[in-house]
């Protein structure tokens, strides 16, 4: 299983699309590794600098409809190759969400109120997340505070995360 614990990258905006996560001009690459330097290169978010802010993060906390737009799996891959395997959002675009689980990554839905609480409590300073898949809880800590949020994980999504993705799962089953 992948690592779901570590430092958080806060992206305080809704509707962040796949072109922002990985622009189409990099879709000419034939390996996932080659995408790594271009993570979130076209994100329009005041104060965000991809060169400075992406390194050493393990999770993204954002708002609604993350990953909308294109079907490109390059979007989860570019996160994966930057060691970001977990995204917490109000909801996800369908294809992006499925792509995350298909790669054995976690796309976790929290309510708008919970996300607002996380942003108001933790963003602007260093914060970390710890994921308990048994209890379905994310524990967020930073600025001397610790808070827990519970989530639901469907049976199929859990099986994909545990199998390491859809290829491994489907290969056994179909």
């Amino acid at each position: 299983m992948k690592n779901f614990n570590g430092k958080i990258l806060f992206l305080d905006r809704s509707d962040i699309n796949t072109d922002e996560i990985i622009p189409a001009r990099y879709l000419t690459e034939s390996t996932k590794e080659a995408l790594k330097p271009y993570c979130l290169e076209d994100l329009s978010l005041p104060g965000f600098d991809p060169k400075r802010d992406v390194a050493n993060k393990c999770a993204i906390v954002t708002r609604a409809n993350f990953g909308c737009g294109s079907s490109r799996e390059h979007a989860p891959w570019v996160l994966e190759y930057n060691d970001i395997n977990l995204v917490l959002a109000e909801n996800f675009a369908r294809i992006f969400r499925q792509n995350m689980y298909n790669c054995g990554m976690l796309a976790i839905e929290l309510t708008a109120d919970e996300l607002e609480d996380i942003f108001s409590t933790f963003s602007g300073a260093e914060a970390e997340v710890e994921t308990d898949l048994e209890k379905c809880i994310v524990r967020i800590s930073g600025s001397g505070k610790v808070k827990e949020y519970s989530f639901t994980l469907g049976e199929f999504d859990r099986a994909l995360v545990e199998a390491g993705g859809w290829v491994a799962y489907a290969d056994k089953k179909y």
Binding site: S71, R72, E73, P76, R94, I95, F96, Q98, N99, N102, C103, F156, G165, W166, V167, A170, D171, Y174
Partner: peptide, 21 residues
């Protein structure tokens, strides 16, 4: 008819199946 990522495509090519909610 649905757009999918490369992993769904890969399993589609190999097994002829795809999962949807």
């Amino acid at each position: 008819a649905a757009g999918v990522g490369t992993t769904d495509l890969e399993v589609g090519i190999l097994k002829g199946v795809c999962a949807f909610h």
